[in-house]
Design a protein around this nucleic acid. Sequence first.
DNA 1: CCATTAATAAACACACTGTTGATTTTTATA
DNA 2: TATAAAAATCAACAGTGTGTTTATTAATGG
Lengths: 192, 192
Amino acid sequence: MAEKIDRRIRKTRAQLRAGLARLMQKKNIREITVTELVDEVDINRSTFYLHYEDIYQMLESIEQEIMDEIKGSIEKNPIESFASSKAQAFIVHIFSYLEENREICNALLGPHGDMAFVERTEKLISETVFDSLAAQFPRNTPDLIYTYTFCLTGLVGMTTAWLSADHPESPQYMADLTHRLFANITQDIISS
Amino acid sequence: MAEKIDRRIRKTRAQLRAGLARLMQKKNIREITVTELVDEVDINRSTFYLHYEDIYQMLESIEQEIMDEIKGSIEKNPIESFASSKAQAFIVHIFSYLEENREICNALLGPHGDMAFVERTEKLISETVFDSLAAQFPRNTPDLIYTYTFCLTGLVGMTTAWLSADHPESPQYMADLTHRLFANITQDIISS
DNA sequence: CCATTAATAAACACACTGTTGATTTTTATA
DNA sequence: TATAAAAATCAACAGTGTGTTTATTAATGG
């Protein structure tokens, strides 16, 4: 069981996190100062430094939490084959998680976001979903590698657009579209 | 004829630009200070402020130059149809330009890059290449819109990977791959 | 209730910023 | 090559955010 953290710490961190997400909707993270953030949520500046080194370390900390949560749910129901129905359920699960955390995920992946987080997201997908897909194509031609990257970055870009859309489609819809897109491209690769 | 700019200005800006590209390979742009940059290229800090407001404005200025150059060559030979051989030549042209400016483009699109620049790049491609492609599909289903985004972001991601590769394939190769990928996906959309 | 822990407040040296005014160096060109 | 114009340098400035410290106040869990 996870240890219970002091209510004051929970409250402080939640306030800072919400405040950061709020500020990131208005401006780029590089323009956000510690002073500005603590003013936004009315917390003493010293308190910030009790929890985080600086704004970027705080962001990484948040990113890590998100990654851990996703990884956790990945380990619970690991993926075997891309074509399996289990895989389909898994993809739905990911999209659902993203929707639940729309605000912060949108901030991180959006125009004011963090390029490094985009890369980490791509890496995570690569390690879990894509590598099993790549295993089906033992060849290693530039064609395959670049097609792989094309799909990976395309998926993340598509998901980012979905997160920022006003009236987004359901996670089920997105998972289905993803599946269809990849099925087609996979087919094309095989036949080429 | 473009006016000739004072050699001192050319040299100073070139030094600053090269220095920024160098620093961006090592660290994120948000961590780069004016003081650090002028130290890197051994130029007086006041001189920097004669040319740019700050690091970000300098980056935007560089981005604008790149955009203008690409837009310029677009207007010279406008694209009619995606399938035409002219379009193919155009895509080769773009990839060639990117290769010539590999250093700075890689810095801007890479892991330490600028999310806003990635967006602007996507927008530029969208306005020129993609919109003519989209005109072929007057329907406006979510499927199409997301597939469009998937291709757009996938292309930029693939290109970014190509720019950062050690021994990259030729622009011709990339243009050909792009063409084949899109031809396949376009085919899939039509048949669905 | 009480010991523990978190949050606050004030103060500090430090670094980077953006600007100014005076001075030196380089440039274009006449 | 001489010269006026323009660019680069240099030193100094107040202003702001940083990161840390120390003492004090407030909230929490048991």
